[in-house]
């Protein structure tokens, strides 16, 4: 199996972990988690310089999940990478668990507490500025939702990042076109999105958010334009990988019944790389 084949296999396994965890706990934000899974798998298995044995290494790349509600994919990836035991996730969303429904920086591998939308990019700007001040070469990645882009603070941060010429900062938009109420363009129009970021001084890269060669290429250092922050607009499908969840806002934080769970598992187990 080639590199991208193993990433596809990994993504299918992470999606299966998400479905298991979400079904078991009857909690979570499954739609956005499935839409961002391939982005996270690309980052954690192909791009980020992070060490689960030394999660606070000063030279590590930083990742912030600004769309903090899509925690399920994030936990499953971090557990799979070995930041904490997979078994820990059995307590997900249970009484007194640290594995709550949004990122919690008491958990190894998680940098900041997020979950109120519109915070992550400013924090990423601060981390990228610190890197520049200390002549470090680490990169900072911030994953945002598309519905999140209605938050004004995102644009304060976007303006600042290009003002400070933070070419060590990459924002990623999980552009699944949906938010809890429905289509982003019906709730609050955010297009023309690429033009907005371009006019804020960003290096804009469009990509298929489920295609591993495209994603890994988009995040690669060779695309950095000196003095400019980069934004990767990743076109995704909310609920990706489970047919009845795909493009259906109902699954923003829907909970599966037993039949739905079984069907989801069957579909994910049929991914070609999993069957190989």
């Amino acid at each position: 199996m080639d590199k991208y084949g193993s990433l596809r296999k990994k993504a299918a396994q992470i999606r299966r972990d998400i479905i298991d965890m979400v079904y078991r706990s009857a909690a979570g934000h499954v739609g956005g988690s499935l839409s961002e899974t391939d982005i996270l798998v690309s980052l954690y298995y192909c791009v980020l310089n992070v060490d689960p044995k030394n999660p606070l290494s000063p030279d590590r790349d930083r990742f912030l999940l600004s769309k903090g509600h899509s925690i399920d994919a994030y936990y499953c990836v971090l557990a799979d990478k070995g930041f904490f035991p997979k078994d820990d996730l059995k307590s997900y969303s249970q009484f007194s668990s640290k594995y709550i429904g949004h990122p919690n920086n008491k958990i190894p591998g998680i940098e900041m507490n997020t979950g109120s939308l519109g915070h992550g990019l400013s924090v990423g700007v601060g981390m990228a500025l610190a890197g520049k001040m200390d002549n470090k070469t680490y990169r900072v990645f911030v994953l945002l939702g598309d519905g999140e882009l209605a938050e004004g603070s995102v644009w304060e941060a976007a303006m600042a990042a290009s003002n400070y010429e933070l070419d060590n900062l990459t924002a990623i938009i999980d552009r699944n076109g949906l938010q809890i109420t429905g289509k982003t363009e019906d709730v609050m129009r955010i297009e023309p999105l690429a033009m907005k970021w371009e006019s804020f001084g960003w290096n804009v890269i469009h990509t298929d958010g489920h295609d591993f060669p495209s994603l890994c290429d988009a995040f690669s250092k060779k695309n950095i334009i000196p003095g400019k922050p980069t934004v990767v607009i990743a076109e995704t499908v909310k609920g990706k990988g489970v047919s009845f969840m795909e493009n259906n806002p109902k699954w923003h934080h829907g909970v599966m019944n037993e039949a739905e769970y079984k069907r989801a598992c069957e579909e994910l187990d049929k991914v070609p790389e999993v069957c190989e």
Partner: peptide, 27 residues
Amino acid sequence: SQFIETGIAEQNIVGIAAGLAASGKKP
């Protein structure tokens, strides 16, 4: 080199400070 101007953007300035602090600075 130890001073950052953010313009009139209070939400941003606090978020940036948090990111600096999380990277070892004392903002």
